[in-house]
């Protein structure tokens, strides 16, 4: 997979929610775009990741 521009190997079958936890993200604080589509925040657990997925994981930072 490509996650935030970096290659990440998908070693086992995972849903998005599980992946975020595994990688140390707080699900409540991020928005995820998968292959160009926003994944609704309530449904991270319904999305089973594929090896060729492109993920963008975003959050708020300070900015003017």
């Amino acid at each position: 997979m490509k996650v935030n521009g970096e290659n990440v190997a998908l070693e086992k079958t995972l849903d998005l929610s599980g992946f975020l936890v595994l990688r140390g993200f707080d699900e409540k604080l991020v928005a995820v775009e998968r292959n160009g589509e926003i994944v609704p925040r309530g449904s991270f657990a319904d999305v089973v990741l594929k090896a060729d997925d492109v993920l963008e994981i975003l959050h708020f930072v300070g900015g003017g």
């Binding site: 935030n4 521009g5 990688r23 140390g24 993200f25 707080d26 604080l29 991020v30 928005a31 963008e56 994981i57 975003l58 959050h59 708020f60 930072v61 300070g62 900015g63 003017g64």
Partner: peptide
């Protein structure tokens, strides 16, 4: 207050919210 959207780093920094 304005804020920006950026790629999140694994390991989660402090929550600006």
């Amino acid at each position: 207050a304005t804020l920006a959207v950026r790629r999140a780093n694994a390991g989660g920094a402090e929550n600006i919210l």
